[in-house]
């Protein structure tokens, strides 16, 4: 089982909208206190499964799931298999953030950003463990539904395929929102040969025109 530890502070500050600012000691103390709360409360979990990648004429699929869109096709170029994964910080984390809002909205805002950085940490750890299962292989970075033209509606299909509600307590609403909120589903490509270093940045992202990170002169962590 995975556990959350010391959370990336720079990423947390960025999620909070701290821009180039440097928090003072009072503020740092608050973040430290909230970080402790989050680590105590969150019950991180992940689940994954690998499937051979099937390319049938124009249709790319794995495990019966159709991987639609040009971006995912480019992302998986040169891959033989994919890993489907889902990870979550648990509903206890949602509950903590929601309850903290009633006590102190500022603390809740800090927690929300910490949890955002926290789920990235968990995904990184999960990815590391998955990688160990494929010692001789090469892996792409995580690609999620909603990136580029990879349809967000795939979220619920991935969750169903991974039996994510039963395995890690992850549900997807009819509007493709994940609950618990601090959750991720992703596709990782597996290849026999080294993969070309693709920039996992804004140039390949269809969200680039409406992205708040970009507007504020930063990016979302995959660059």
């Amino acid at each position: 089982m995975l556990s959350l530890d010391s959370i990336n502070r720079a990423e947390t500050l960025r999620y909070m909208g701290f821009g180039e600012g440097i928090p003072d000691s009072h503020f740092t103390e608050r973040i430290n206190a909230m970080e402790k709360e989050l680590i105590k409360t969150a019950v991180p979990r992940f689940v994954w499964k690998s499937e051979p990648l099937v390319s049938d004429e124009d249709i790319l699929s794995a495990g019966g799931i159709i991987l639609a869109g040009n971006d995912i096709r480019a992302h998986l170029e040169g891959c033989t298999h994919v890993v489907f994964m889902a990870a979550t910080l648990s509903i206890q984390t949602d509950m903590l953030i929601s309850r903290t809002q009633t006590r102190n909205i500022g603390d809740a805002h800090i927690l929300d950003a910490l949890a955002g950085a926290g789920i990235e940490q968990i995904c990184g750890k999960a990815e590391f463990l998955i990688k160990e299962q494929f010692p001789e292989k090469y892996m792409t970075w995580r690609y999620s539904a909603g990136y580029g033209d990879f349809p967000i509606e795939l979220q619920s299909e991935l969750a169903a395929y991974l039996d994510a509600q039963r395995k890690i307590g992850l549900t997807v609403t009819e509007t493709s929102l994940m609950i618990p909120k601090k959750s991720v589903t992703a596709v990782i490509g597996i290849a026999d040969k080294p993969l070309p270093q693709k920039r996992s940045g804004c140039t390949s992202c269809n969200m680039r025109d409406i992205c708040n990170f970009r507007r504020n002169g930063v990016h979302c962590g995959n660059a």
């Binding site: 909070m16 701290f18 600012g21 503020f27 909205i105 500022g106 805002h109």
Partner: peptide
């Protein structure tokens, strides 16, 4: 003026709420 940032503004608002 960009001298404090959103999270600090929110903390202040939370304190004012009390």
């Amino acid at each position: 003026q960009g001298k404090i940032f959103l999270p600090q503004l929110i903390l202040t608002a939370g304190a004012a709420q009390a």
